[in-house]
Nucleic acid binder design. Structure first.
Lengths: 337, 337
DNA sequence: CTCTTTATCGAAAGCGCTTTCGTTAATTGG
DNA sequence: CCAATTAACGAAAGCGCTTTCGATAAAGAG
């Protein structure tokens, strides 16, 4: 490994001057700077990130924490899309992402501890559970942080306009003539789930539509299987809804599966609208009508918010609410009477 | 930030002894070790990864490089599934993953340079293009490396048994009575594509089935759109195949789309078998019959191979061929009459 | 009781880099 | 021509930790 000491020796200058030349200090003449840069080139010198970070207290890394409750990790299409967007934007600013765990040399430590150990400049968390103590600990620390997919935390936040999304879904269904509209909700322990419920309730109210017993059903944590279970219950109702707004595409897919299994048709018998617009949505049958979350924008804004805090060297509490969009495909149709 | 110096002062020992106590050296008495650990607990001491790495030349990090040609990055379901599995296994051994880019403080550097700068202990690359110069550079470096999804490189490799997969697909189709079997291939510049073609050819040969002009068509880099384009060409043939083996699920989905658009049915008119078994495969209509790649095992073996090299402090050239599995769903049917 | 082991600890150097502060030489101003 | 700037550079300390090697004291051997 070639160090600044090596290139100092080669050029005849001190390590101080070499370091300064490399960091664009003004008190090094252009001539010597060129000489040094030439030597750097010739000898294939590369700085050592660890030494640099140790000295400057800045690591140019961002720690990322994923929801850990479910087993999917970065396999989740919605989360991975956001992270991919975040990564691109962070990279452009010169930051690398580091995925840490709770395992430090076989000792169990918290995420915050691990990130402190790594000396990250900031943290991004994508986590649905708004009560997660690990997340709270990080929010209360001094490390800049941005959390995605939560509302109402004492830190910088980026989230979709879930209330509006819920309204959008219900209003669209209503515009097709539906009045018996059910909602397979995301668990209210997740802010996303809770807000979509609010949107659903608000829209139903504004439309003066009744929400019969059983029409608002907790689908849990957004998995296909939970969507199935919820839909089965809905199908058992005396007055089966003609349309259902499902709080996540995966659950919607599950719902559609059971509807088909029961010999019913989507959308002819029951209209289904999902939420997220994951890749799969456009390719299942029928193609899923859904509320699209702008993952590119979410990742971008999250990166912005975090960079800002790092730059200003202090935690900022800023919220960005990202608009959602109704994507009309084939899983909803006019109510036949 | 509390350092070993702080806890040395508090306990009355030297930093040397503190460090030794923390690293389980034998020449520190049990009594003082306990005192020190107590102080560590009380003061909330955490080691500093940068200082540690600088001193020990070991960073407990693994660099990951993703195929960069396509825009999907970690959104790709197959790649992200592998990385997720790799991550879990690496974490268990105490390693963190770091995603680096080619941007170092706005200077364009190679992946190898970036990983050197970061001082990673090893590199994992998931990249289809077997000729990528960036990858070659890393393979030729001294850093332990494992590359996934390539054959025939001078380094440790983990890949699916693609030849066998190709045979499996063809033989299954043949067992259903099909003889006019086409192949929408992955680009031969990718080892995966090339090997699946080999498997297809071999199986067709063994079965003494002809491969008419146009039956072997290059689908490109595995995207849905490329699958569509390829299928359209197949449909233009004088003698349209009754079954097609598609080298990737995404392409297969595209193929199915165009078949439907043309008013034909899957599998009644044309049977389709895919490759990968991405999540979506089980939920499209018809549910996609496919060759499943064992992403969990691939990630696991890759981690093992890399850990071994790191442990032994030298590059090893070991290949792991991971078995694939035929997943029968609904997109293939018996050849009528 | 003297000599060798063994157990326990610390001084100091070093990892590669940054940054403060001082020094020297060259330049400017009057 | 002399004093005051300014330009260009380097010594040295420090970031937090590890590791070698030596020192001391206690224990064991004969």
């Amino acid at each position: 490994m070639v160090t600044i000491y090596d290139i100092a020796k080669k050029t005849g200058f001190s390590t101080t001057t070499v370091s300064k030349a490399l960091n664009n200090y003004s008190d090094v003449s252009e001539k010597t700077r060129q000489k040094i840069l030439q030597a750097v080139e010739d000898m294939g010198y590369l700085p050592n990130a660890h030494a640099q970070s140790l000295s400057t207290k800045k690591s140019w890394t961002i720690g990322v924490m994923f929801a850990e409750d479910n087993e999917v990790g970065m396999k989740h299409p919605f989360f991975s899309a956001i992270i991919e967007s975040f990564r691109k934007n962070a990279e452009r600013e010169g930051y690398d992402l580091i995925f840490a765990s709770r395992n430090l040399r076989n000792r169990d430590i918290s995420y915050l501890e691990h990130f402190s150990y790594r000396g990250v400049d900031g943290i991004v968390v994508i986590c649905s559970d708004s009560q997660d103590p690990q997340v709270q600990e990080m929010i209360n620390s001094t490390i800049p942080i941005v959390v995605i997919d939560m509302n109402n935390q004492n830190c910088s936040l980026v989230y979709s306009d879930n209330i509006e999304g819920g309204k959008l879904a219900v209003n669209y269904l209503h515009s097709l003539g539906h009045t018996k509209i059910a909602h397979i909700a995301g668990d209210p322990s997740t802010d996303a789930g809770a807000e979509r419920i609010k949107g659903y309730n608000k829209a139903m109210n504004d439309l003066k539509l009744p929400i019969p017993e059983g029409y608002l059903i907790n689908g849990g944590l957004f998995s296909i299987n939970e969507g199935k279970e919820a839909m089965e219950k809905l199908l058992l109702l005396d007055d089966v809804p003609t349309a259902v707004f499902v709080a996540g595409d995966h659950m919607a897919i599950g719902a559609i599966e059971v509807i088909k299994e029961k010999g019913l048709r989507v959308p002819e018998d029951i209209s289904i609208i999902g939420y997220d617009d994951i890749e799969m949505a456009a390719y299942i049958t029928p193609k899923l009508t859904t509320i699209k979350q702008d993952t590119d924008m979410i990742g971008f804004q999250a990166a912005q918010l975090l960079m800002n805090q790092i730059l200003q060297k202090k935690k900022l509490v800023v919220s960005k609410k990202i608009p959602v969009e109704l994507i009309i495909r084939e899983s909803c149709s006019k109510k036949e009477n």
